[in-house]
Design a protein around this nucleic acid. Sequence first.
RNA 1: GCCAGCAUGGCGCAACUGGUAGCGCACCUGUCUUGUAAACAGGGGGUUGUGGGUUCGAGUCCCACUGCUGGCUCCA
Length: 664
Amino acid sequence: MTVDGEQRTAAQGSTAADLYAGRRDVVAARIGGVLRDLSTPLAEGDVVEAVPVGSPEGLEVLRHSTAHVLAQAVQQLHPSARLGIGPPVRDGFYYDFDAEVPFTPEDLKELTAAMARIVKEGQTFRRRTVTDEQAREELAAEPYKLELVELKGRAGDGADAAEGASVEVGAGELTIYDNVRRDGTVAWKDLCRGPHVPSTRVLGNGWALTRTAAAYWRGDQANAQLQRVYGTAWPTKDELRAHQERLAEAERRDHRRLGAELDLFSFPEEVGSGLAVFHPRGGVIRRAMEDYSRRRHEEDGYEFVYSPHITKGALFETSGHLDWYADGMYPPMHLDEERGEDGAVRRQGQDYYLKPMNCPMHNLIYAARGRSYRELPLRLFEFGTVYRYEKSGVVHGLTRARGFTQDDAHIYVTPEQLASELRALLDFVLGLLRDYGLDDFYLELSTRNPAKSVGTDESWQVATDALTEAAAGSGLELVPDPGGAAFYGPKISVQARDAIGRTWQMSTIQVDLNLPERFDLTYTAADGSKQRPIMIHRALFGSIERFFAVLLEHYAGVMPPWLAPVQVVGVPVAGEFAPHLHDVAARLRAQGVRVEVDDSDDRMQKKIRTHAKAKVPFVLIAGGEDVAAGAVSFRYRDGTQDNGVPVEEAVARVVEAVRSRVQV
RNA sequence: GCCAGCAUGGCGCAACUGGUAGCGCACCUGUCUUGUAAACAGGGGGUUGUGGGUUCGAGUCCCACUGCUGGCUCCA
């Protein structure tokens, strides 16, 4: 047989476990290309590869096995709990249960203790094949597992019955895993495709339960709600700790936390859920972001428009938004209705809606007069604030708000212009994102969902082809997202990875042949005929508030100087040196630098601490030596110093850092 | 919207099984002021998210609402 690329012979009846007896890190084997348990007997000619616990597949096996131990613990402590699905997920696993009483944090502690006992006991996972018949019999008390068995019998193989279901029932035969105690008795069993680690001991102490949550059976809101327990699992305790440290780092960067700490924005309860107010310091950052974007758009041929926040409902009937998204819109205000004394309507009222989108307004601007092909591409841009009635459970800081401002542009082109405009647009978008400090991207192509879309197949094909071509031209990885498009057209979205590796959906570019139709938009072509323009929707930040949050988390609040609320603070070593710093500050201010001098009666060390915590990019310190030399001393945010820098040079250094938008 | 948890001065937290609110930072006042992350002293500030209930008595118990957190569903 072939073992990890080498020819070897093995005794009759030996297993993969025998081959890797000396390697404790091997948790499974790939035999003939299929992931199998180590206990699998080998046959002549088998091609065997080790699956180490640290490999992506090894981690999945480890995590899935940990999920089994969790389920065993749950049924041990809560015998009436019925089993749902328990797959591995990123960094860990979950298992869903139909439990009479929802789990509490205390339950989590008890479950952890019960799991630790099972792990320590060293139960082995034993695989056996069962017929559908046997499975139905053995799982008579597990209605959810039965449902998976039934689904397997129907179209497909059941693996697509629900997210994660593939770990329970694979293609072909059904298998049940018994958890066997040392004395040979069966502690617990579960319908499962496997494979599993050989013994619960392998799990060691590299796992932890993290939280409980509710989840709908098979991911459908119409189904029963199950109790989900999440956990994380790693090959070693050190790796578990490292993972927990990464979570702690993400928490330290949380924009909601930094927003309060740095006095940038808040969500007053009096205003309403999901509605932010920006404080002066947050306002500076936001304005710097917007100003730069505005300038770049001007340079790239965009024209700026403005539109109201509220409109009559008919506009959203024309656009189709009321058909598709009425639930996500704030309910209408019914205005102007008059009734007689008999209660009968004398004058018909009107429904007004807060706008959830800017595009219908921009279409009206386009349609305000006849358009010539000479005007195209016509690029209309607006920082347009929109309002969406997000469901209460999804509102999340600035990243999922009920009121937010899109940097929204609609570009009207002739069919001939579409391809080149898209290509240029993608360049423009990526370039601008890089200027804000993001530089690791991939693209996603969201295509038509037939159940949720309007328009002809041809128009969707044209639009999708144009986007695919533009994406290919960028050289970036393109991930398909079938059915992910909005109702009016396909889209490319730019996904950006931040400083700690998380990905965020940033810009979107959508090609739309449907709204121009609905709004009956036309232009006069060179031959005098009326033609239909194609519309491109694009948002670069998506939402300014959300982009603000992403940048804040990306930089962990340590904003590059051009975005920092206060760019320079002068700290005199003693009060008598303050005038020197005020002179320096005046020179900086004349160059547009946001600078303050700390005249408070704190001691110098305290002032440094204060401004370090505020993450001010440049602290300029001046004492007797600096004044005598006509210099200042730099203290950077990482604690490094550059002392005795001549004032002229210091000013130039700060101005250049701001101008070039570098991080310091 | 659903499930669970949480809500105490601006921020972070404390107050045993119900006995009438305290600390640190921040803020204000005064004194102090020479080299890179916290000088010292004093002071002000909370009807414990809102409304109702139980109780002799509620920050602590119950109900509703509002908001937040973590998931699920959703995200034009």
